Simulated scan of single mutants.
Amino acid sequence: MKLTECMKGCSATIVKLHAQGPLKQRLVSFGVMKGARVELMGFAPAKSTVEIKIGRMRLALRKEEAELIEVTADA
């Protein structure tokens, strides 16, 4: 499922990163890569921005960027 399909507070593991080029390099530099655990902290109004926690860092991603991250929800 896409990261944007998770609910607030959901913990998930990244299965695949569908981004290309500079966007992929930027996400990887922040630790957004296959096998990393993320927690969805919340959405901005109208779900235009997604806030995630990866490790001890919090990131705000545009909805279009978050949809490129395929995850599986942790039990």
Rank of each mutant, 00 (worst) to 15 (best):
M1C: 10
K2W: 01
K2G: 00
L3H: 00
L3T: 01
T4C: 05
T4M: 05
T4S: 06
E5L: 12
C6G: 05
C6W: 05
C6M: 15
C6S: 11
M7D: 15
M7Q: 15
K8R: 08
K8I: 11
K8F: 08
G9T: 03
C10L: 09
C10S: 14
C10E: 11
S11Q: 14
S11H: 14
T13L: 10
T13M: 12
T13G: 09
I14H: 04
I14W: 06
V15D: 13
V15S: 07
K16A: 08
K16S: 11
L17W: 00
H18K: 12
H18D: 14
H18E: 14
A19M: 02
Q20T: 04
Q20H: 13
Q20M: 10
G21P: 03
K24N: 06
K24F: 03
K24S: 07
R26N: 06
L27P: 00
S29N: 13
S29Q: 08
S29T: 04
F30A: 01
F30P: 00
F30E: 05
G31F: 02
G31W: 01
G31K: 08
V32M: 03
M33F: 03
M33Y: 02
K34D: 13
K34A: 13
K34T: 13
K34S: 10
G35R: 09
G35Y: 10
A36Q: 09
A36R: 09
R37L: 06
R37E: 07
V38A: 08
V38Q: 11
V38W: 10
E39I: 13
E39N: 13
L40K: 07
M41V: 14
M41N: 10
G42V: 03
G42L: 02
F43S: 07
A44W: 09
A44I: 07
A44N: 12
A44M: 10
A44H: 12
P45Q: 09
P45L: 04
K47Y: 09
K47M: 11
S48F: 13
S48G: 11
E51K: 15
I52D: 00
I52W: 05
I52H: 01
I54K: 05
I54L: 10
G55L: 11
R56G: 07
M57W: 12
M57R: 15
M57D: 14
M57Y: 12
L59T: 02
L61Q: 05
R62W: 10
R62K: 08
K63W: 13
K63N: 11
K63V: 11
K63E: 12
E64Y: 14
E65M: 04
E65H: 04
A66F: 04
A66H: 04
L68Q: 07
I69Y: 01
I69K: 01
E70K: 04
V71A: 05
V71P: 01
A73V: 15
D74K: 08
D74R: 06
D74A: 09
A75G: 12
A75E: 14
A75V: 06
A75F: 08
